[in-house]
């Protein structure tokens, strides 16, 4: 049954893609994209137009995106934290070299992640990418030493406070400029290509970076320690 149905479904899907996808490059960028590129610097003073779109023009969508990430991570942690012992393999302790190397690299990687999300309005990068790098430094630490305890309370506070402050910043936009997450007249826009420029964009991206970093770190910790609460072999 499956062997007959699968080729039929794949053929239909292939036909749909063949019809729907233009296989040549478009002649020009879309009208809305043209507007963003043309007025992005004048509106927000951010060199990176993609950041401008994500944090300012479509900032509400980004709030939704952050909520989706939060919900899926919460769901994953909830599913993993049920207290039934499940240990897939007994971990071998990592060697001295790996442990020392991980401790040595943790700081620089964390700093690099912070650099990425603080420069989101100037260079490729931003809150989500920087947050992922921050979480990867935590992953490195946990890979080197599985029993390292994480400060769950601190991570939870960072995560919820940054999410809360994101909404507060958006509300300030309503109070001062009349629209949610507005970037007009709240912070000075500054000079093009300065670190302290683009008004609220770096502030929001730092908050997003902190939120995504702490969320993914909690997720990694939950995955490493899933089912270990009882400490018994399944």
């Amino acid at each position: 049954m499956r062997q007959i149905l699968t080729p039929i479904v794949l053929l239909l899907l292939g036909a749909v893609l063949w019809q729907a996808v233009p296989f040549t490059a478009p002649a020009d960028i879309s009208e809305i994209g043209r507007r963003f590129v043309e007025f992005g610097v004048a509106d927000n003073r951010a060199a990176n137009i993609v950041t401008s779109v994500i944090v300012n023009y479509r900032g509400l969508d980004t709030l939704g995106e952050v909520s989706v990430l939060f919900l899926s991570v919460t769901g994953a942690i909830f599913v993993l934290r049920r207290r039934e012992g499940l240990i897939l393999a007994t971990p071998t302790p990592s060697s001295e070299l790996v442990a020392t190397g991980a401790r040595l690299l943790f700081g620089p990687i964390l700093l690099f992640g912070a650099y990425i999300f603080a420069h989101g309005h100037l260079t490729p990068g931003g809150g989500f990418q920087g947050g992922a790098i921050v979480a990867s430094s935590v992953l490195l630490l946990l890979l080197a030493d599985r029993d390292r305890a994480m400060a769950h309370n601190a991570l939870g506070w960072i995560e919820s406070m940054s999410g809360f402050l994101y909404v507060v910043v958006g509300m300030v936009g309503i109070a001062i400029a009349g629209s949610f997450l507005s970037n007009k007249g709240i912070l000075p826009l500054g000079l093009w290509n300065d670190l302290f420029s683009a008004g609220l964009i770096p502030v929001i991206y730092v908050l997003v970076g902190l939120k995504v970093g702490s969320e993914l770190a909690t997720l990694i910790d939950a995955m490493m320690h899933s089912g270990e609460k009882e400490g018994t072999q399944a």
Binding site: I29, F36, I49, D61, L69, S72, A76, F128
Partner: peptide
């Protein structure tokens, strides 16, 4: 190139990570 599709894909990648984890 068009910044709109790039912003959409940035959103989609983040959500894909969350869904994969779930």
């Amino acid at each position: 190139v068009d910044p709109v599709v790039q912003a959409i894909v940035l959103t989609a990648i983040v959500i894909a990570v969350g869904v994969t984890a779930l």
